[in-house]
Every structure is written in C-alpha cells, then in structure tokens.
Design a binder for these strands. Structure first.
Lengths: 119, 119
DNA sequence: TGTATATTTGCACCATGATGCAACTATAGC
DNA sequence: GCTATAGTTGCATCATGGTGCAAATATACA
C-alpha cells in the first residue's frame, strides 16, 4: 500500500514525486520495455515489445498498461493491435521538474566534515 | 531479484538508471525521510529522523542505511550517534544526469496521431 | 568494569507485486 | 457467423521487501 504521510514533503515536491513512476523505473522489465520502445523509436505492438525480455506476453501487456497509467508511454489502438510509444523527452522533462523542485525546496547548508561511515 | 537483461538499455542509460535509487523513491517512508532531512537541513540523528513517520526506530535505521548505500544520503558517526545528511542538490544532479542520458540515447521521431486508449 | 543511550541486526510476519497459464475479449478477414 | 490473431484479465504461486519486536552491538560515562 502506498501510504502518504501527512506533510511528507514540501508541496512542490509532493506534486512531482510520483511513486508510480519510480516503482516502474525500479524494476528491470519495465525498464527494459522503455529501452526497447526507445531503440525501436516507432509505435511498437505488445508482441514486438515482448522481444525485449523472456517473460510471458501477458506480463508485457500488464507492464505496458502500468507504464501507460504512469504517463510514461502512450498507447494507440490500430485494428486489433495496440501500439505503444515512449517519449524519452517527456520522461526527461519530468525528471528535470523533480530536480528543480528538489533544489527549490530546501536551501543547502554547508556541513563541517561529512565522513562516510563504513557499512 | 533485480535481474538485468542483456542489452536492456543503451550503455549511457544503463550506467545512470540506478534501480536502488528508484526503489527508494518509490516508497513513502524513505521519501518522508528525505523530506525530513531536507527540512531540518542539518546533520540529523536516526532518532530525530524517526519523528517523520509512525514506524519503529529500527525501520528508520534500515531505510537510512539503504539510502546511504544508494548514495542519496551521507552518514557520519559522532560518538554513539550517527548523523545523516541529504544533499538535495546532489540528488537533483543525478536526476538531471538521467534526463540528459535519456535525451541523448534515442532521437525523437514524430508519430502521426497518438491517440490515448481508454484503460 | 558496569550501566545507560544510540543504533544495528536477527527473526518472523504480512502485504505487495511480478510471473505463468488459461480463459476471455476485441478485431479482422473469410 | 466462424476462425484466426492481438491483447487483456482472472487466478494461483512465489519472491521481495516493509514492518515490529527483541536481542546484539557500539559508545559514553560513572
């Protein structure tokens, strides 16, 4: 369950930190699908996209739907096939928006002597 | 298990798409911790950080360690306490690096008529 | 050395999500 | 309408990871 804590992040941050997007990017199969759509660089059917990884077609279908819901890819139906497209530019723009929000939310403060702790 | 598919992403992308970072940002507790460290804006102990959310102190300790391993926060031990610091600037920089890699990897191509498919 | 505080780690439990298979729906062509 | 192809969805299974509790470790101080 994705529970949001009260006052978890500054408003601007909270608006752009989309858990769905990060969850998608944290798993290898969706990541592979994003790369696959990128290298094909053209509307790609579920069957074509499935060549990216050794998983069942239904798994690919589900992941693509998840990516669509997360706003990372777009879908268009043509007859009996559905063609997916990824906009790396759009995804990059979203990451930059988050970066902007991060820098804006909390002014940096110099710390005296940050020493790494061995793990 | 985080399995990396062969040729999952262009080299430049693969180098910056860190699953550990995205996994951390996809869960509310680590996100709340990042925000907590940001608003305090100074080295923060585990006990202080734990005020961010209604979870056991051990959970906070584990999440902070995970964030440290993911390179998102830094830790320094002072006596019996460990003080954590987050650099929003550094995190923002990493996101921008990913954005750059995304834009560089696959030249955009215009699609004819991207129509959303109802879910 | 003994005690108190701060943090980490072992362990068990539970919710979530990824997966494969089979059944189902949608569409095209006969 | 019937059949074939493309994709989605239901269901069961399994791995992962978040969580709390208790025990262990690290350090300071008496």
């Amino acid at each position: 369950m994705v529970q949001i804590y009260k006052g978890e992040a500054p408003a601007a941050l909270e608006a752009v930190l989309d858990p769905a997007m990060f969850k998608a990017l944290g798993d290898p199969t969706p990541t592979a699908l994003i790369a696959r759509l990128g290298e094909r660089n053209a509307p790609t059917t579920v069957t074509e996209a499935a060549e990216c990884c050794p998983v069942d077609l239904s798994v690919v279908s589900r992941h693509l739907a998840m990516l669509r819901d997360a706003g990372i890819v777009q879908a268009e139906r043509h007859g009996r096939e559905v063609r997916y497209t990824v906009s790396h530019q759009a995804l990059a723009a979203r990451l930059r928006t988050i970066a902007d929000a991060l820098e804006a939310c909390c002014p940096e403060e110099s710390t005296c002597c940050p020493t790494e702790v061995e793990r």
